[in-house]
Lab assay of single mutants.
Amino acid sequence: HNLTITQGKLFFHYNPKLCLSEIHKMEEVSGTKGRQERNDIALKTNGDQASCENELLKFSYIRTSFDKILLRWEPYWPPDFRDLLGFMLFYKEAPYQNVTEFDGQDACGSNSWTVVDIDPPLRSNDPKSQNHPGWLMRGLKPWTQYAIFVKTLVTFSDERRTYGAKSDIIYVQTDATNPSVPLDPISVSNSSSQIILKWKPPSDPNGNITHYLVFWERQAEDSELFELDYCLKGLKLPSRTWSPPFESEDSQKHNQSEYEDSAGECCSCPKTDSQILKELEESSFRKTFEDYLHNVVFVPRKTSSGTGAEDPRPSRKRRSLGDVGNVTVAVPTVAAFPNTSSTSVPTSPEEHRPFEKVVNKESLVISGLRHFTGYRIELQACNQDTPEERCSVAAYVSARTMPEAKADDIVGPVTHEIFENNVVHLMWQEPKEPNGLIVLYEVSYRRYGDEELHLCVSRKHFALERGCRLRGLSPGNYSVRIRATSLAGNGSWTEPTYFYVTDYLDVPSNIA
């Protein structure tokens, strides 16, 4: 807008934040220059609390790290170098490059900038070799853009010569660093050979998330399962459950009422301010606690030095998902009996873990797994792929695949051998790939016309006998059925096997 004052003059007093240069501009645009008398524009009460600059400061050096910015700028000295009290560095987070010096300023003089007072450097006698002032900004957020400017702080001049310097606002972004852990990993099994893994992005990506790394490792069953005799009275049979499938998407929606109208769909109840505040506090606490764990609990591995020492970490090797089922080394339970199943799973520490690289999504279907087997899954978020990966501390989750139908069934015939004193040795093959492992066998036998009897055969007993022995049988026709019990439950009964026990007292003698 054009402003013209045809008559009258300007009068400025007691404006401590208004620089004289701005008042002189007002004289020019209003056409009143030359009308004012000496005392109409006070030299001592206008701009006496402001830094009124008329020179431009330029930054000469900028260096960044993930949490620091090192700045240096060209030296500046007023005509009387004693008038320079120091520099004021202003900075704040700036997602967009549209910041002005006066953003967030209120009537009390406060604003949204963080201000650092910096002492002037030592003055050199040689004007050509003056030290460049600077400042190291610490405690910054990774991968965050900051708006920065600097200006001088000078003393009051009796001659009211307006001098000083100020830089333009520059924008500097800190470097990326390792992201925080992925949030809320959930693993479920939808079949006997697959596990579905879902997660949420890290709360602090500290860069642009480029991919996720998912490692999985087959877990050995508890050692007590191999040692305890679950045929003993009072000892509860062990059981394991597989990871249940995901709930429906509708039930997972946030901010939804727990109660549904019987007449149909209901609208979600909005969260109160107290609920939102509580969630923010919980989120802040979780982030602080995660940072504490990362800094205190997890110790970084030592990389190899120039002395030739090897990095103890196993090298990563990509495998196809079809090879995942046989990740671990199978060892027989008892070496003397080769027909026992290889369900003991000690994992070799030198073995390469299978892994998958996930790009542009937060889910993965891990296939080719062994049925009813526990897996430990390790999830890392990465925001750099080359020249070397920059990934987060791992988040861990466990899951067990679903049982395989008929995996616990005894394959092959049940054979028998009759000894003296009416002892019958029953023999059968253990299931080759049971659900988890076989903890015991149930032997059901009966003599024709009598009630059915049951015998429990422990895992250890089966390994020693290759089956079991029935003792003290009365003469007669017998039928026997056997079924295995694994961590997933009972298998199917075998087809009945028949044998006849004679009275050993009636056996004919070869003595003449």
Results as ranks from 00 to 15, higher is better:
246 F>M: 08
303 T>F: 06
362 E>R: 13
476 G>S: 01
436 G>T: 13
474 S>N: 11
243 S>G: 10
413 P>T: 03
234 G>K: 04
249 E>W: 07
463 A>D: 13
506 D>W: 09
385 D>L: 13
266 C>G: 10
420 E>V: 12
222 D>S: 08
372 F>W: 05
482 I>R: 01
455 L>P: 03
216 W>Y: 15
263 A>H: 12
282 E>P: 05
342 S>R: 13
203 S>W: 07
439 V>A: 15
251 S>Q: 13
250 D>L: 10
381 A>D: 01
387 P>S: 07
387 P>K: 14
305 S>W: 09
380 Q>S: 09
413 P>H: 15
500 Y>L: 10
352 H>Y: 05
396 Y>P: 04
223 S>C: 12
284 S>M: 15
375 Y>D: 01
401 T>G: 03
447 R>H: 08
309 A>M: 05
509 S>A: 10
399 A>G: 10
273 D>R: 02
444 S>M: 07
335 A>F: 08
336 A>Q: 03
231 C>L: 06
218 R>I: 12
291 D>V: 02
312 P>L: 14
316 R>S: 07
440 L>E: 04
356 E>S: 15
221 E>S: 14
281 E>R: 05
404 E>Q: 15
211 H>M: 01
288 T>R: 05
453 L>F: 05
246 F>K: 11
337 F>A: 12
313 R>V: 14
304 S>G: 13
281 E>S: 04
419 F>L: 13
209 I>V: 10
326 N>Q: 15
350 E>K: 15
226 F>G: 05
206 N>A: 08
317 K>G: 09
463 A>V: 09
481 R>I: 05
383 N>M: 04
208 N>Q: 15
472 G>T: 09
510 N>R: 08
221 E>H: 15
369 L>E: 02
351 E>D: 13
303 T>N: 15
222 D>L: 09
254 H>T: 07
319 R>L: 06
207 G>M: 11
451 E>M: 14
393 V>I: 15
468 C>I: 07
489 G>V: 09
483 R>K: 11
226 F>L: 07
392 S>T: 03
451 E>F: 15
275 Q>L: 06
483 R>V: 03
250 D>W: 04
304 S>D: 12
336 A>M: 15
240 R>M: 14
214 V>W: 01
481 R>F: 04
242 W>H: 12
232 L>T: 12
459 R>L: 10
360 N>P: 13
462 F>H: 13
367 S>F: 06
400 R>C: 10
324 V>N: 11
421 N>M: 11
366 I>S: 01
381 A>K: 09
445 Y>T: 05
499 F>P: 02
263 A>K: 06
244 P>G: 15
230 Y>W: 08
461 H>V: 13
474 S>F: 10
315 S>F: 13
296 V>E: 05
227 E>H: 10
504 Y>K: 14
387 P>H: 08
498 Y>S: 07
368 G>R: 12
372 F>S: 04
305 S>K: 11
289 F>D: 03
349 P>R: 14
315 S>V: 07
239 S>A: 09
357 K>E: 14
339 N>H: 12
227 E>S: 11
336 A>R: 05
420 E>Q: 15
472 G>Y: 10
276 I>Q: 12
214 V>I: 12
323 D>G: 00
259 Y>R: 14
434 P>R: 02
501 V>C: 11
440 L>D: 02
445 Y>V: 06
441 Y>A: 01
285 F>N: 03
421 N>A: 10
303 T>G: 08
311 D>H: 14
260 E>F: 04
255 N>Q: 07
422 N>K: 14
272 T>V: 05
477 N>A: 13
452 E>P: 15
271 K>F: 05
279 E>A: 03
251 S>P: 09
210 T>Q: 07
337 F>V: 10
433 E>F: 10
495 E>T: 13
